[in-house]
Every structure is written in structure tokens, then in C-alpha cells.
């Protein structure tokens, strides 16, 4: 039994206990059955590597460290949008475009994280990822200048793109 099954089982079972709120034998055994069913279908979702390694733990720790920076960016994004939306001459300020740029990220998890982070940061939304190209809608040219930039470096560092190949 590989390690990743066991750890996914513990995470899912904790979620089950929180959501059900019942601690008798019947409900807990129902929880065990459903967790085993879900893991047998989607065991490769949480940990993508075949064997559970030390890398997975560092990855999780780095991801948790990445979240506060993301929250800070989200607050900035919201203030930016609020300023635009409440500005009386809004039509002069915005200059929307779709921007196409190449990425160096390869893994599915890092592509998804980078796409969600772009959507949550000021003035940009991911539209499409195709063949290593990102299509991003930017609301003016100033916010587009930061892409891909610092955020791609951070995501690259979190998911250790360089060492896995």
C-alpha cells in the first residue's frame, strides 16, 4: 500500500468527520466506506508522484507559505477594481486586450495554480492555456507589464519544476 493512499485517506476522513458531526459507529463506518471508494477512483489527485517522497512535504509547506503573498495580491486587486468601477471617467482609464505569452511551467498542478493566481491578481484574467501559451485578458497595458514575471518564479519555486524534469 503506497504512502499517498494512506495520507489522502486521513485527509478525506478528517473532512468527513467535520462535515458529519456524528461520532457513533454507524456514521464513522459509512465515512470509511465512502473515503475508500473516493480514493480508489481519484487517488492521483492530491499527490501526483507515484511514491510519496520528502518532496511532497516541502511542496505543501512552500504552498502554505505562498498563500499569504497571494492574499496580499488579492487585496491589491480588489482595491484596483474598486477604484476603476467607482471612477467617474472609467472609460478613459481602461484599455482592455488579450495578451499571449509563453510559459516555462510543465506540471498540471503548477499550471492550474498559476492560472488561478493570475485571475486573482490586479487587472488580469486567464482565458485559455494552449500548447504552453497563456491567453490573458488584461484591463490596461500597465498591469500587463508585470506578466509573467515574479509570480511565475514563485509558482516555479513552489512546485519545484526544475528538479523534476
Amino acid at each position: 500500500m503506497p504512502m499517498r493512499y494512506f495520507i489522502s485517506f486521513i485527509i478525506f476522513f478528517l473532512l468527513w468527520v467535520i462535515w458529519s458531526g456524528q461520532f457513533d459507529f454507524f456514521h464513522l463506518s459509512l465515512g470509511v466506506i465512502s473515503c475508500v471508494l473516493v480514493i480508489s477512483i481519484s487517488h492521483d489527485l492530491l499527490f501526483q508522484r507515484k511514491n510519496f517522497q520528502k518532496k511532497d512535504i516541502t511542496e505543501t509547506a512552500r504552498f502554505i507559505k505562498y498563500i499569504p503573498w497571494l492574499l496580499y495580491q488579492i487585496v491589491l486587486a480588489n482595491i484596483h477594481v474598486a477604484k476603476l468601477a467607482l471612477h467617474p471617467r472609467m472609460n478613459d482609464l481602461i484599455d482592455p486586450h488579450i495578451i499571449r505569452f509563453k510559459t516555462k511551467l510543465r506540471k498540471d498542478m503548477s499550471l492550474v495554480t498559476f492560472a488561478n493566481s493570475i485571475t486573482l491578481t490586479p487587472g488580469t484574467i486567464t482565458i485559455l492555456i494552449r500548447d504552453g501559451y497563456y491567453f490573458v485578458h488584461a484591463i490596461d497595458m500597465k498591469v500587463a507589464e508585470d506578466l509573467p514575471g515574479e509570480m511565475e518564479e514563485r509558482v516555479c519555486h513552489v512546485f519545484m519544476e526544475d528538479s523534476d524534469g
Binding site: I74, A77, N78, V81, A82, L84, A85, I94, P96, T119, L120, G123, I125, H137, I139
Partner: peptide, 11 residues
């Protein structure tokens, strides 16, 4: 609606 999504998706 691309710009409208900028407003709703973030806020």
C-alpha cells in the same frame, strides 16, 4: 463581459 468578469470574479 470580459471586463465585467474582472469586476465580479475578483470582488
Amino acid at each position: 463581459f470580459y471586463s465585467r468578469m474582472q469586476a465580479t470574479g475578483k470582488c
